Amino acid sequence: MIHHVIRFNIKSGVSDEQLDNLLNSLRRQAVAVPAVVSAHVGRAHGEDRAWGANFILNDLDAYWQFITHPAHLETDRLGWPLLDDFTMFDITDDTDPTIGDAIAGLHERRLREFPELVDVVAPPRDPCQANA
C-alpha cells in the first residue's frame, strides 16, 4: 500500500468558493479514480499547513493510474495556482528499497508525458530537502 499525502496552504486572497472548489476536486478523485482505495481530504493539524489529503493506493501501477487520471490532472490545473505552500510525500509498507526512486520516476514520467503540466505543477521536492 502507498499513502500519497499532500499538505498545503492557500494564497492570501483566495476566496472561500475557490477553496471549496479545490477541496471538492480533491474529493472527486476518490470517486472518479478507480485506483484509489480510500481518501481523506480536509483540514490538516499538527503542522504549519492548513489543508491536506491522503490517497491510499495499492501499488505503483495504481499510483500511475492515479496521477495520470483526468480527475487528478484537473485538480492540478485548478489547485496549483491557488497554493502558497505545498508539500507531498508518500508512506508505504513496501519493503523494496527502490520504491522511493520508482515513485519519483513516475512523477518525472508524468511531466514528460504531459508537458502541459510543466508550467502548472512544481516538480516533486525531495522531502529531505524540503526544509533546507
Rank of each mutant, 00 (worst) to 15 (best):
I2W: 01
I2E: 00
H3T: 10
V5S: 04
I6D: 03
R7W: 00
R7K: 12
F8M: 15
N9Y: 07
N9C: 14
I10M: 10
K11F: 01
S12F: 05
V14E: 03
V14I: 13
S15L: 10
S15M: 01
D16W: 03
E17P: 00
Q18E: 14
D20V: 02
D20F: 02
N21C: 08
L22M: 15
L22R: 00
L22H: 07
N24M: 05
N24Y: 02
L26M: 15
L26S: 07
R27V: 09
R27W: 04
R28C: 07
R28V: 05
Q29I: 15
Q29R: 13
A30N: 08
A32F: 02
V33M: 05
P34N: 07
P34A: 08
A35P: 03
S38Y: 11
A39T: 03
A39G: 13
H40N: 10
G42I: 11
G42L: 09
G42M: 11
G42C: 12
R43E: 12
G46Q: 02
G46I: 09
E47P: 00
D48R: 13
R49H: 10
R49Q: 11
A50F: 08
A50G: 00
A50E: 14
A50R: 11
W51S: 03
W51Q: 12
G52K: 02
G52D: 05
G52F: 08
A53G: 13
A53T: 05
N54W: 03
I56G: 02
L57F: 09
D59R: 00
L60N: 02
D61S: 12
A62Y: 01
A62S: 14
A62Q: 04
Q65G: 13
F66I: 04
T68E: 12
L73D: 06
L73E: 08
E74A: 15
E74W: 05
R77W: 09
R77S: 09
R77Y: 09
L78T: 07
G79S: 07
P81F: 06
P81L: 11
P81A: 05
L83D: 03
D85F: 00
F86E: 04
M88K: 06
M88R: 12
I91K: 00
I91H: 08
I91W: 06
T92H: 05
D94C: 12
T95Y: 05
D96Q: 05
D96Y: 10
P97Y: 03
P97T: 09
T98K: 12
G100K: 09
G100C: 09
G100M: 12
G100S: 12
D101T: 10
A102M: 13
I103E: 04
G105R: 12
H107L: 10
E108Q: 13
R110A: 14
R110W: 03
L111M: 15
P115N: 06
P115M: 08
P115V: 07
E116D: 15
L117R: 08
D119C: 06
P124N: 06
Q129C: 05
N131E: 10
